[in-house]
């Protein structure tokens, strides 16, 4: 009798534990719901005062001035410019180092280089901001005298350095997942290692590599502190990397630092900009995950 009772208690305890664990896991869905709820509510309030057409197509962003304009394009342009510079560094360098680590490096070299490269991803972004503002910009000014103290170039380059390990490590995983049979077949047909790598292995891993590229772009768009420190606070519709610009993320920081009371239109602009940022990065992340799933399915 006592035995059966303790069994029943035990079974009930098991059920309770499973429920608690499930609630914890399901809580993560609430985070997403919370993000969307907060962004949608404040953005909706913002769009009652500003037309969505003006917001998305306007070329003037001056919500903090007395003559207010709410065209987000200059912020989008700033984000695109810095991200493009970062990608020009991180994508080719990341892919090349992934190819080297996966196809060429002896395993001893690989075991040392991989974690060392990953150190780059562990440095806090505000430290990278410091590096861009006080080291890279002055260094570049020696060659490019017209470079402003705040500019898109230096933070873009530093951001590329920060994102390189992400691209490299995910691309390497993709290359690594390509079955050795493909390599051996290429060698058997007389290919050199480079021919095998560039014409067989890389094409076979292309969706995995693309997933890492897209995730890198998403990371660049959402990166905040490097640009908040070193890119400036002047929203400007330009492709010139030498002048100060402002990104979407840097704008959110700028307003948060100021004393903008809740409920005002200026305050709501950061949620509207945040919404746009969320939609952009979310779309990229979904595409990246989809590509990675597809790639996983190919060789398993």
């Amino acid at each position: 009798m006592a035995m059966r009772l303790s069994n029943r208690i035990r079974r009930r305890a098991e059920t309770v534990i499973e429920c608690v664990l499930f609630l914890c896991a399901a809580g993560s869905v609430l985070i997403t719901a919370g993000i969307i709820a907060v962004l949608v509510m404040e953005t909706a309030a913002f769009l009652r005062d500003v037309s969505i057409v003006e917001f998305l197509t306007g070329t003037n962003w001056t919500p903090l001035f007395s003559d207010k304009h709410f065209g987000v394009l200059p912020l989008v342009a700033g984000t695109a410019l810095v991200s493009a510079i970062a990608m020009a560094i991180a994508l080719p360098a990341g892919l090349l180092s992934a190819i080297y680590l996966s196809e060429y490096a002896p395993s001893r070299v690989r075991r040392v280089l991989k974690p060392t490269l990953e150190l780059l991803a562990g440095v806090p972004t505000v430290v990278y901001g410091y590096f861009a503002l006080l080291f890279v910009t002055p260094l570049l000014q020696q060659w490019i005298p017209s470079l402003s103290g705040f500019n898109a170039l230096a933070p873009g380059l530093v951001m590329g350095l920060m994102i390189l390990p992400l691209v490299s490590s995910l691309s390497e995983d993709a290359l690594h997942a390509v079955p050795d049979g493909l390599r051996e077949a290429a060698f058997a047909l007389g290919s050199t290692r480079m021919q095998t790598t560039l014409r067989v292995v890389v094409p076979a891993a292309v969706s995995g590599i693309a997933a890492s590229f897209i995730l890198g772009i998403s990371r660049a768009i959402g990166e905040t502190m490097i640009v908040a420190v070193a890119a400036g606070q002047q929203p400007r519709l330009t492709a010139n990397p030498l002048v100060p610009v402002e990104t979407m993320t840097a704008y959110i920081v700028q307003v948060s630092l100021g004393d903008t009371p809740a409920g005002t239109l200026e305050y709501r602009t950061i949620f509207a900009v945040g919404m746009l940022l969320f939609i952009m990065t979310f779309t990229l992340n979904v595409v990246s995950n989809w590509l990675r799933q597809r790639f996983k399915g190919m060789y398993s």
Binding site: I35, V38, L215, T224, I252, G274, F278
Partner: peptide
């Protein structure tokens, strides 16, 4: 895991 950290700030 891919949502930018500043969005968490807005949340």
């Amino acid at each position: 895991a891919g949502v930018p950290s500043i969005i968490y700030g807005l949340l």
